[in-house]
Each structure stands twice: as structure tokens, then as C-alpha cells.
Amino acid sequence: MPRVLIVEDDPDIRKAVQLGLRHQGHEVFAAPTGEDGLRQLHPFRPDVVVLDLMLPGISGLDVCRRIRERDQVPIIMVTAKGDDIDVVVGLEAGADDYVVKPVQARVLDARIRAVLRRHDASAPDTVRPRAESHGELMIDRAGLVVTHRGENVALAPSELRLLLTLSASPGQVFSRQQLLEAVWEHSYYGDIRLVDACVKRLRGKLGGAPRYVQTVRGFGYRFGTT
């Protein structure tokens, strides 16, 4: 049973989402503030955090950043309709996906299950060795371990899945829409900001320069080692 931590200050929304997710088979703990959410992160040990960006006290963005400093638990942020700037900033802060209010339990349940599948990311269909070396980057597909210059790299689920997808076919160019479908399981015409923000975070964790995740202007991204 997936364990979901909801951080939402509106009591009506919090109760409705909590009941809806429980009906979908999740174990749910709800926190009314960012401070409460951070305090419950360790004892509750959620599989997914559903985080409202507009919170009293510590903002949702700060909560997201603090979680990412110590944990790679999947984060789905909740935003008000039309808050495009908050979406971009939230994704760059480390969120894996987002939903827009009013939140529908079925939609949120689908996003939760998708992000959990990414968290348990498996290698693409092509059979590959357990560990791959790409210059200073090592990828252990079976163990889901990534090291760069000998140091372990802590990747959020979407970052890991993105790296696994691109590195499975070095040199192949993937459009943003192809990556949305492969990594986020968004089969409709989705939000390419998810891809761009994830690429930015991944590059930052792999040294900053676009050596491994290269931009193909006007189309998408490819994996390279030079």
C-alpha cells in the first residue's frame, strides 16, 4: 500500500484529497503546514509527498528544497491554475511532477502510481551490462546506482529515469514529447517544462556542463560522452 504524505493548509482540500486517496488504496497522512510536513517526513516515511506550493509559514518551495537536501522521495506539487512561474520554480527546486487545482483524486492517484513506477525504474528493453562506463559517469542499471567521478549521485525518480532513457541509446535524439511519454508516462501532449527542468537539475548533479545530456536545438535532447 503506497504511503502518501499530503502537505496542504486548506482543511477542505486536505480532507477531500485524503479521503479520495484512501479510497484509491493509499495510506495517507496529512499535514496542514510545511513545518508539520517536514517533521512527519522521517517518522511516516512516505513513498510520495503531495505538496501544495502556497503554504503559511515555510513555503511549499522551501519545503521542496529542504526535502531534496536530505531525501529523494518523489514529490508531486500542487499549484493554482495559471501559476506558470511557480510551476517552473517548483520543478527546478526538485519536484518530480505537478497537478493543478482543483485536485481530482483519480488524476492524483494516476500521477502517484506513475511516479512510483519511475522510482522503481527498470532498464529499457535492450539487454545491457549491469554497469556502464561513460567517461567519468558510471551507471549501474540493475542496482540503480549512478556515480560521477567516483562519487554517488543522488537522483530523484524522474532524473534517474531520464538518465536511464537517454543513456540507453547514446547519440539518439529524443524529442521532449518522447521523453514525456517515456519518463513521465504522459501520453497526451504534455508540459515540456517537466523535461527542461529535469534536464537542468540532472546536469547540475553531473557537473553542470551539458556533456552527457546534450541539447539538440529546436528538437530535444540526446546522451553523449563528449
Rank of each mutant, 00 (worst) to 15 (best):
A209S: 02
D83I: 00
Q104V: 12
D86N: 13
R22K: 08
R68H: 11
L51H: 07
P32Q: 04
E151C: 11
A93C: 14
P129L: 09
T225F: 01
G190H: 03
R193S: 07
V183Y: 06
D62T: 07
A114L: 00
R68L: 01
G94L: 04
V88W: 07
G37S: 07
D86I: 06
V89K: 02
A30Y: 04
V115Q: 02
A209W: 09
F174I: 05
A142S: 13
E27G: 10
R70M: 05
A95W: 08
H186Y: 15
V17C: 02
V63P: 01
A131M: 06
R130E: 14
D12I: 14
D71Y: 06
D120T: 03
P56S: 11
L180I: 06
E27M: 08
D120M: 07
P74C: 12
I75R: 00
L53I: 13
D12M: 09
R106E: 15
K81S: 14
A16H: 05
D86L: 10
L137T: 15
G143H: 13
R193M: 09
C64F: 01
V63S: 05
G135Q: 13
S59T: 14
Q104F: 06
Q214V: 12
A142P: 00
E136W: 12
P129W: 10
G94F: 04
H23I: 03
D96L: 01
F223P: 00
L51P: 04
V173S: 06
A110R: 12
M54H: 10
V127K: 13
R3C: 03
L179E: 09
V73I: 13
M77R: 01
R128H: 04
G82Q: 10
V103L: 05
V50R: 00
L91F: 03
A95V: 13
L144D: 15
V48I: 14
L91E: 14
A121I: 11
D83Y: 02
T225Y: 00
L116P: 00
D96E: 11
A197R: 02
L180P: 10
T79W: 04
L55C: 05
H148N: 09
A30P: 05
L5E: 05
A110Y: 01
H186T: 11
F44H: 08
D96Q: 07
V146H: 02
E132W: 09
L53A: 04
R176P: 00
G90A: 03
G34V: 00
V88Q: 10
G94V: 05
D36N: 14
P2M: 14
R70A: 08
H119A: 14
P2E: 15
R130D: 11
V63Y: 03
G34T: 03
L166Q: 05
G207E: 12
V216I: 14
R70E: 12
A105W: 07
D47N: 09
F29T: 06
I85W: 14
S175T: 15
K15M: 14
R176W: 07
I192V: 13
G90D: 11
L164N: 02
P129I: 04
V173I: 15
R68Q: 03
P46M: 09
Q172L: 12
G90N: 07
R149Q: 15
A182G: 10
L160D: 03
E8F: 01
A156F: 01
G224P: 08
Q172D: 11
L166T: 01
I13P: 01
